[in-house]
């Protein structure tokens, strides 16, 4: 991703950070600013009510449907619902970053800031990662304590799967963010897309159990591969070799989607320059 517009008019004083130091500083500052904003928006109670209570309700619904008859599916769903918090964070948080900044009137400032765009974008996105991790932890602890789900993880497989899964989601987030900025109705777009990702992403059931036409569509998304691999690695100590049928396509997505995201970001930047304004009105 290219750095911001060369700021010829902005003079860099001696002693100011440049290069990687500047990028890291911008990343940390944007992370702190976004976290403070999120906490300030709903207060600590509201923040935790959202990220702690929501996964409990979702798991509660699945537990009441599967009951004790299908422990295998319930175990899978607990892991998948924990992982799904990162999907919804990708859509509703990362995917809405640019448009949210546009509405706040800070997008122009961010684009013109003399630091790489990737730095503040990543700083903001890391707050989404933090929230998703919190939500996932609550889901897994609830599954363990209240529903008796027992984990038997293969840590190496779990780490590799998680890395590939998050890389894929990061790419999706950047793509959605660009589309959202172009549409200027990001939240509506997120709400339009998210039910399909629930249906086809293997959130409540493994993608392998979907009827044929739906399964074919689900197989062109990274989510089902990621969910299955995470569940197998977390519950059945599946090794990396055993997870190869899931990890190979997921690795492809982990490379292709971030590239597509960078291309989409470039495309939106060109559209911005063509129109001559960042607000895109």
């Amino acid at each position: 991703m290219r750095p911001s517009t060369p700021a010829i008019s902005i003079s860099t004083k001696v002693g100011e950070r440049v290069g990687p130091g500047l990028a890291l500083g911008a990343l940390a500052a944007s992370y702190r600013a976004m976290l403070a904003e999120r906490l300030g928006h709903g207060g600590l109670l509201g923040y935790f009510a959202t990220w702690v209570a929501l996964p409990l309700f979702q798991i509660g619904i699945v537990a009441l449907i599967y009951g004790d008859n299908r422990r295998d599916l319930l175990n899978y769903a607990v892991v998948a619902l924990a992982a799904s918090s990162s999907i919804f964070s990708t859509i509703y948080f990362v995917g809405e970053i640019l448009d949210r900044e546009r509405v706040k009137g800070t997008l122009i400032g961010l684009f013109l800031a003399p630091c790489p765009r990737l730095s503040w974008l990543t700083g903001f996105a890391l707050v989404g990662v933090f929230e998703a991790a919190l939500s996932a932890a609550v889901a897994l602890i609830f599954g363990y304590v209240a529903l008796g789900v027992r984990f038997d993880p293969s840590w190496s497989a779990l780490a590799l799967t998680l890395a590939l899964f998050l890389m894929s989601l990061w790419g999706i987030g950047i793509i959605f963010s660009a589309i959202g900025l172009y549409l200027k109705k990001t939240n509506s777009f997120s709400n339009l897309v998210s039910p399909f990702l629930t249906l086809l992403g293997g959130v409540y059931y493994p993608v392998a159990l979907l009827p044929d036409p739906l399964r074919w569509v689900a197989r062109v998304l990274p989510l089902g591969y990621g969910m299955q691999a995470l569940a197998d690695a977390a519950l059945g100590r599946a090794s990396i070799a055993e997870l190869a049928p899931q990890l190979l396509p997921l690795a492809g997505f982990a490379v292709a989607l971030p590239l597509a995201g960078i291309l989409a970001f470039g495309w939106i930047e060109r559209a911005v320059r063509l129109r001559g304004e960042l607000d895109l009105y």
């Binding site: 449907i65 599967y66 008859n69 299908r70 039910p195 409540y204 493994p206 979907l210 739906l214």
Partner: peptide
């Protein structure tokens, strides 16, 4: 999605 959830659980 809910219909499929019931369906895969065999109910």
């Amino acid at each position: 999605a809910m219909r499929l959830t019931y369906s895969v659980s065999g109910q």
